[in-house]
Amino acid sequence: MNENRRNFLKKTAGAVLGIGAGLPLGQVAEGALGKHPTDEGVSGSTQWAMVIDIKKCLGEEVRQACSEACRKAHNLPDIPNTSHEIKWIWTEEYQHVFPDQTHPQQATGVREQPVLTMCNHCKHPPCVRVCPTQATWRRDDGIVMMDMHRCIGCRYCMAACPYGSRSFNFRDPDPYIAKDSNGKLPSDYPVRGKGVVEKCTFCAERIREGGTPACVEAVDAIPGAKGALTFGDLADPESGVSKLLRKEHTICRRPSLGAEPSVYYIV
């Protein structure tokens, strides 16, 4: 569906709801949410995106390096109970990442191929649509951000995310963060409290300083794995991601849902 029609329908739906309650109309479209204080300096002329080359990520050390770099950069806890894990970038089988691109005759090797997965930073994020406190929102530059100080921990976003990309702090993460011998945390990224939801933020804190996401930096440091993950600006036709998307056959996760992920895969 084209963009105008889509927004029109959304606004109409919102207006119908809004009229009933005498509320200002047309605010329902995700873009109309108020600006978050931390959005200062964020511009809509940039559209961040990631291209993941599945073939280049087949080696376990490559994927491990990504997850480890992320773990350190964001003080992620190592929670032994897998059903309470905090995951920002991790590995799943191809058939689960791309359930719509799998068929019974597909080679087992392909179906079970390890694929890196993370928050897709969707253009129409269902998590943002449902959050009752605007604790998660889409920035003008396409990053779906999370305010862990505002989140009330209702987990509606977890129910709404079609990619399973959100984690909830079922307990205080602090005791489970690997610290060095002096008790120092791996990074100065704020440690979350219990009871809030978190997820990948495309390393917004590093991008602000002109850097690249920690996972991208980590794979680029591995000989032979350079280009496994490419991060850049979709709005810039000369950026790495734009060039790759023009040249390669790429797919994204569950396109039929219309969320429009900003994470693409070269199969």
């Binding site: 949410l33 009330i152 987990r155 909830f168």
Partner: peptide, 27 residues
Amino acid sequence: VDLGQPTRVMNVLLHPSISSLMCWDMV
């Protein structure tokens, strides 16, 4: 009782989101 951060429950009133059905449910 389902909230992870029950002390912040007032955020639903402070920063309500019109597109969230949870806000509407509260109303």
